[in-house]
Design a protein around this nucleic acid. Structure first.
Length: 215
DNA sequence: CTCCCGATAT
DNA sequence: ATATCAGGAG
């Protein structure tokens, strides 16, 4: 523990907690199955676009069996606006098959099983653990990665480094909350382009204030 | 590392 | 016209 120095992690947690007191996914879902579909579609896509698509899609598919049996072309058409639709449709159907066969049609609640499912990488697996099963998880998406670099928490922004660094410096009970708050702050304030540094609650502890003025 | 897609910004 | 943004697979 550093004594004569502020802990940047507790400062971030304290400040961002005022802005984002409640953890709520930006993806709309009512069941574990729906979150699984939504998180696969969310790859390289905004949550808003995913929600626009799933609103209708969830009326037609309600289980991994439904997903397994829906014709590929029909699924591709339904998810088209989320981009990468060939990949995603294939991933969803292969994932559904895998879950039916290996996990008795039930979404697993542990990382080692989730990461085996075709189409789920680390970010999606941890998002499922956090949002669906309320387990501790560090969800490192592009926003969390960007903020971790800008705030100087890591030098290298690859997701595993960010995960390790947060795990090392933050109590486990705050892992999911911290990654959630960094995600929200990245979406709303510390945007990729033209971050609003002047209005940012973290601008007193951020080494990168004014970044928008440069390239 | 490249490929996968498309909307929006510049 | 070209750049940027949003993960995973091979």
């Amino acid at each position: 523990m550093v004594v004569n120095n502020i802990n940047i992690y507790s400062e971030i947690l304290r400040k961002l907690d005022k802005l984002y007191p409640e953890i709520k996914s930006n993806l709309n879902f009512n069941t574990p199955f729906e979150f699984y579909v939504a998180i696969v579609l969310a790859a390289q896509c905004t949550d808003e676009k995913v929600n626009a698509v799933t609103k209708e899609l969830f009326k037609r598919i309600k289980s991994f069996e439904d997903l397994d049996s829906i014709p590929l072309e029909e699924l591709e058409e339904a998810i088209h606006p989320t981009g990468f639709y060939h990949n995603k449709a294939k991933a969803l159907k292969e994932g559904a098959k895998y879950i039916i066969k290996n996990f008795n049609s039930t979404l697993p609640n542990n990382f080692d099983d989730l990461i085996k499912i075709p189409g789920l990488g680390r970010k999606s697996a941890y998002a499922i653990l956090g949002y669906v099963f309320n387990k501790s998880a560090i969800v490192v998406d592009t926003h969390v990665k960007r903020l971790a670099v800008r705030l100087g928490l890591v030098k290298k922004g690859d997701p595993i480094t960010v995960e390790k660094e947060i795990a090392l410096n933050v109590e486990e009970k705050d892992w999911f909350k911290l990654s959630y708050m960094l995600n929200q702050h990245g979406r709303l304030m510390c945007t990729a382009k033209n971050p609003k540094c002047q209005e940012c609650i973290l601008n007193d502890i951020c080494p990168k204030v004014g970044i928008s003025k440069n390239k």
